[in-house]
Design a protein around this nucleic acid. Sequence first.
DNA 1: GTGAAAGCGCTAACAT
DNA 2: ATGTTAGCGCTTTCAC
Lengths: 326, 326
Amino acid sequence: MNDVARTAGVSLKTVSRVVNGETTVDPTLVARVRAAVAALNYRRHLGASMLRRMDRRTGTIGLLIDDVGNPFSAALHRAVEDAARARGVHVLAGSLDGDPDRERELVRAFARRHADGLILAPAGADQGYLAAELPPDIPIVFVERPAAGFAGDAVLAGDASGALRAVRHLIGHGHRRIAYLGDPATHERREGYLTALEALGLHPVMIDGLRGSQAAEAATRSLLGRARPPTALFTGRNLITIGAVRALHGLGRHLDAALVGFDDFPLADLLEPAVTVVAQDPAAMGGAAARALFERIDGYAEEPREISVATTLIPRGSGEMPPTGS
Amino acid sequence: MNDVARTAGVSLKTVSRVVNGETTVDPTLVARVRAAVAALNYRRHLGASMLRRMDRRTGTIGLLIDDVGNPFSAALHRAVEDAARARGVHVLAGSLDGDPDRERELVRAFARRHADGLILAPAGADQGYLAAELPPDIPIVFVERPAAGFAGDAVLAGDASGALRAVRHLIGHGHRRIAYLGDPATHERREGYLTALEALGLHPVMIDGLRGSQAAEAATRSLLGRARPPTALFTGRNLITIGAVRALHGLGRHLDAALVGFDDFPLADLLEPAVTVVAQDPAAMGGAAARALFERIDGYAEEPREISVATTLIPRGSGEMPPTGS
DNA sequence: GTGAAAGCGCTAACAT
DNA sequence: ATGTTAGCGCTTTCAC
């Protein structure tokens, strides 16, 4: 910048003004500065500028989600990126893999990097650590799951009510023995399942802690091998649904057992039978989270908000099959 | 940091030494400093430290891919993240959507942010601008597609040879009328297709410029409506394959026309018929790209390398069906 | 082993 | 409208 000033024959401050697009500069000088900038291939150092600036914005937000490689998270990421791009903000993304330690570590790392804000899909059961870890001037918005022990805006999908709807759908098609397959992060969906069954005095069958598609496939196989197997399955997230589908196909029983999955997934409509799902809208959730975050960054300081993005039950066939067997 | 020094009763420099883990500090002072750091909840400002440091590393790399929300790109992203995490490096990701302007803009943005290196899946036909836009001290690795007009390491999938193999596979199953469906980014795969057909004097049928799954679906429908429709399809990327599958199912002709797709996709094995693909390994590509980039960041300065990640033909059914009709 | 002073590249506040 | 000075938070160099 010094070199530019010298080359253009102006003061350092004038260069700064030109580079920052301030209007109060003589056009002649502006031209001279621009020429020098071009000649020297000068680029301003954002780190240094951010050091002295008032607003101290880095133009970066942190996105902490389950797995950037998972289609659901990836769709959400994309929506966040689009909203960020509209403001010229960039996205630092990180995968948590359901690991609370990783969550905390990444929050700390992004805070140290002075992200302007964070969007977090909580992995751990408690976000109390945020009080110590997160500087008060960097806002956070939770997405997918609510946070515990720390107040902040949250963008949620109405998991419990969506699950309730899914299970009622199966009940409406005559099913009484309905099993639930889930993992730690689908806790709220399990609650919806239980609510629906309890209302009718039905007996819950729950398999929990399924990490990944393969575990779900194995669990489904063993479930269907039981003496009185369930006539319908309710699966708590897309990877689990896919594992279940794989098991049903593998056993040749895909036309026997009904299935409703939480989360839509690509090609669900082309399977045989096509898979009925309760679809979340990851793009809408990402967009809502980004908007909420930018409002906070812009100074909105009211009470934490809970933003609900509706789920949709999409009947495609697998959830409308009647019970078979006894 | 000044406050910490005062609280601990040491000089600023000593705090700096402790924070940076230098060993030549009296343990007593180390303890005092650590206590003060904890008491004041001090965090080092990385931006400021990076300003004066010798190595000038930001601990960030930029990843510029087609679309962070697309499963293929997302899997690649995940592999890059894993490699980066092992070094304590974070990933700034951006989607290009096939837009050369966006490519250039993001390169500039990430360069200004002083990313330590870039991984780019070229969207534009020419990367000559990099000579001007990219500071010489920030290395770049190309992935998925080679760059034109700028030298750099490239991680490629052997597109032409994979396509050749796919088409030969169809020919081996008796097909003579084989159509190609692609988009601008699958150019090399088209070359493989042409090579295979020309070797036998077969007549190529090519539909190009298909942006997205819906365009592919429409194109497939019109293709199959022709007087002498192709008996087999070769699709240039996963979204196009999915569009074609959707069209075949929609027309009820999924058991009539053979299909081999470039790129694997989730659930390809559960469709009816299961879809034969030439699979790239996005995770391997992302890992290789990250490794190559980190080698460059660490000072490796030999000639640009081309790293090839093998493709695999996975026969699943759709590519092994014999020709039907005339 | 520790500290004082200088300076990284830039912008704020205050002249002029 | 332009320039001067001070200082952001840190690491360097060099003296103690």
